[in-house]
Simulated scan of single mutants.
Amino acid sequence: MATITERDLAATIDHAILKPELTRADVDAELDIAAEWRVFSVCVRPSDIAHAVARLDGTGVAVGTVIGFPHGTTSTAAKVAEVRQALADGATEFDMVVNIGALRSGFDDVVTADIAAVVAAASGHVTKVILETSLLDDEQIARGSRLTEAGGADFVKTSTGFAGGGATVPHVELMRANVGPGVQVKASGGVRSYADALAMLAAGATRLGTSGSAVILGEARRVDAGGDAVGAVDASSY
């Protein structure tokens, strides 16, 4: 079974802190988890950006946020305004939701222009496009992946985690097959264990969105120490 060290795995994780019901104390607890496990970044609600930047100062954990979340149906102008405010608040990565209805309708020019406008507003910072794969068929996922690349984004991402379903190995593989080497794939939604993480990375993901970072990295730590991860399976079986 392919394995990955705790440190290398942590470097793939965007720790999600996005549930609408979270209190400030809940958010702080999650930010502390991200700092403790030294994940790559947190992905926080837009209203939490400035606080997260201040609390994580000096930890090496980047702060990202969501744009047009969770449905993707806000106007392009609204998405651009969100990016500009998020930049001012200190965010450095942006996970935008694609206009799902436009993608399903075949309005490819609308989808591409929406992505391109957000990418331009991000001013060189990393932009990820969430397709919400549970609401799409394979043709739409493949086309959405290609439109993500056409719009200039850095990543295509599976899910918000708020529409049912989540990342699957076949969808990650499909997305990987439909973008060039300059576009990466983020698996998000339902990535809850070390085994899940291995499977998504083996399928072609290079970033993982999860709120289960402590569980996943705790299992990786046990593997590093020569033990077995709880629920670990051969990634090749996925």
Rank of each mutant, 00 (worst) to 15 (best):
L9A: 03
L9E: 01
A10M: 07
A11C: 01
T12L: 05
T12M: 04
T12A: 06
T12I: 02
T12G: 06
I13D: 00
D14H: 02
D14Y: 03
D14V: 05
H15V: 11
H15K: 09
I17R: 09
K19I: 00
P20W: 12
P20Y: 11
L22R: 11
L22E: 12
T23S: 12
D26I: 03
D26E: 06
D26K: 04
V27I: 15
D28C: 12
D28E: 15
A29Y: 13
A29K: 15
E30A: 08
E30F: 07
L31T: 09
D32T: 13
I33V: 15
I33T: 15
A35W: 11
A35P: 14
E36I: 01
W37I: 06
W37L: 06
R38D: 07
R38H: 12
R38S: 10
V39Y: 00
V39M: 01
F40W: 02
V42D: 00
C43L: 10
C43R: 03
V44A: 08
S47H: 14
S47D: 15
D48I: 06
I49V: 15
A50D: 06
A50C: 05
A52E: 07
V53M: 04
V53C: 06
A54M: 08
R55A: 14
R55M: 11
R55L: 11
L56M: 07
L56I: 07
D57H: 14
T59E: 09
G60Q: 12
G60R: 10
G60W: 11
A62L: 10
A62E: 10
A62T: 04
G64R: 00
G64T: 00
T65K: 02
T65I: 04
T65E: 03
V66N: 12
I67E: 03
G68N: 15
G68P: 09
F69W: 06
F69S: 01
P70M: 05
H71F: 13
G72T: 07
G72V: 09
T74S: 13
S75D: 02
T76H: 14
T76P: 14
A78F: 03
A78D: 10
K79C: 12
K79W: 11
V80E: 13
V80R: 10
V80C: 13
A81N: 12
E82Y: 05
R84I: 00
R84M: 00
A86M: 05
L87I: 05
A88K: 14
D89E: 12
D89R: 04
D89M: 07
G90H: 04
G90K: 02
A91R: 08
A91T: 05
T92R: 06
T92G: 07
T92N: 03
T92W: 00
T92L: 01
E93P: 08
M96V: 10
M96F: 10
V97K: 05
V97M: 05
V98A: 02
V98N: 02
N99V: 00
N99W: 00
N99S: 01
A102I: 00
A102P: 01
A102W: 04
L103C: 08
R104M: 14
R104G: 03
G106P: 08
G106W: 13
G106H: 11
D108W: 11
D109Q: 13
D109L: 09
V110C: 04
V111F: 04
T112Y: 01
A113G: 10
D114M: 03
I115A: 01
A116G: 10
A116P: 10
A117F: 08
A120M: 06
A121V: 00
A122R: 09
A122L: 11
S123N: 13
H125A: 02
